[in-house]
Design a binder for these strands. Structure first.
Lengths: 230, 230
DNA sequence: GGTAATTAGTATCAAATCAATACTAATGTC
DNA sequence: GACATTAGTATTGATTTGATACTAATTACC
């Protein structure tokens, strides 16, 4: 059952295509990525988990399986982020690599032996092709978080609104206004309050919520050119 | 120089990976996609231009070259939209296909022999894997249009604001409010008025503009949950 | 036990944004 | 020259936003 993934020596046979996976989790107030030992050079001793692509080519399922194997748990959300190649170095001999991003809530059970979380701001050297994948993965999370329930998948099934806001701040890389955040959240009918409160040290206990999207598409807003430019 | 692309018979040799390209252009008020003759079955007689991926694997450059070859002109904008496989039928024997989307202004010079524009709402039968690519391409254009200058690449170098608005309406699939559209456009400093006007039949002549982005990132807006849901 | 510190959550309000409507401007058609 | 037609702008009321300041409930500390 436990598919063998990221075995650097056995996998180093020639193959046209690899499948790499960037598994992300919150690590305190930073985003962390899972790396495993082994790499293409002496200098690059860590790498993203990867596997070779079989001809059966059930891409998404392969990615989920690989992520589960490397992280010890099935990931809470997975999405393809693209194909990378263009001559950049990779732990495998593959000339093309398919990359996926996965997210998982903080602090699951123990990781498989050797695997380790690294904060994205403090990564060890990894092969350039995988470095590009990690950057793309982080950008993808940031961009997709308001069309996919990424933030909710980074949290446990129940969470406080402050925790949710912190995940948004973590992914967006900026502070968010508390009142506005909650107003928007309420208007979107995405969460449901539980009859439970959690006391975290001093201060008033926070109510717990769960992700329970209710409503449908609304806002046809005007055109936003803001992201364009230069 | 003219790389041979989409030659169904020669290309049908076995290969792990193909590179397919969805070339889009405005066609009146509809979006059109370029197809070429040949397909995997009697029923599917048209297909997206595609090529096999060489081991050199300069992915983006291969895509641009393939698009230029199939469309007769270098495309104005190209972006990878993902890898597709999962067992769906494709004109090639490739188990995995890399797809790119390209855009080109309306009505270039003549197309290469056999190639033809089809409006996306009236496509002939194509192989299922390519059908998925076309759908993904259209969605990608819609989503990326406010972070990439896609709309401007679908137009000639100079254009009227009404033309620009029509491209937005075409891609967004909905009407846009004229005054709001222009107000946002002005605030974004994306276009520059020329000293030229164009008279299109009756009515007041429209001023011509060109794409000349000036300003930098502004609007840190609040969190938008609107796209999330159900 | 009481007071301060701390975190959760809400209310108020001014500024910015938006979209509907109605207007002015410049051209071709008859 | 009146009118239809398209370009482009002004006005206005409604909605959204974010800053500030407030209330609420708990722990820390004396």
């Amino acid at each position: 059952m436990r598919a063998r993934v990221s075995a650097p020596l056995r996998a180093r046979r020639s193959s046209a295509v690899s499948l790499d996976i960037v598994i992300c989790t919150p690590h305190g107030r930073r985003l962390a990525v899972l790396l495993v030992p082994g790499g293409p050079s002496m200098r690059e001793r860590w790498m993203l988990p990867w596997t070779t692509l079989t001809d059966a080519a059930a891409l998404d399922e392969t990615a989920v399986t690989a992520a589960a194997s490397a992280g010890g748990v099935r990931p809470a959300w997975v999405e393809q982020i693209g194909a990378f190649g263009d001559g950049k170095r990779h732990p495998s001999t593959a000339t093309v690599s398919l990359a996926y991003v996965a997210v998982t809530p903080e602090r699951q059970r123990a990781l498989p032996a050797g695997a380790k979380w690294f904060e994205v701001d403090a990564l060890p050297p990894v092969a350039p092709r995988q470095r590009t994948m990690i950057e793309t993965a982080v950008v993808t999370l940031r961009v997709r978080m308001d069309s996919s329930p990424i933030a909710f998948r980074l949290l446990a099934p129940t969470f406080t609104l402050t925790e949710l806001q912190e995940v948004y701040e973590l992914l967006l890389g900026r502070r968010v206004h508390k009142a506005s955040f909650r107003r928007s959240l309420q208007a979107a009918w995405l969460v449901e309050p539980m009859d439970e409160w959690r006391s975290e040290g001093r201060g008033r206990p926070a109510q717990l919520y769960r992700y329970a999207p209710r409503k449908r598409r609304g806002g046809r807003r005007g055109v936003r050119f803001e992201l364009l430019g230069g």
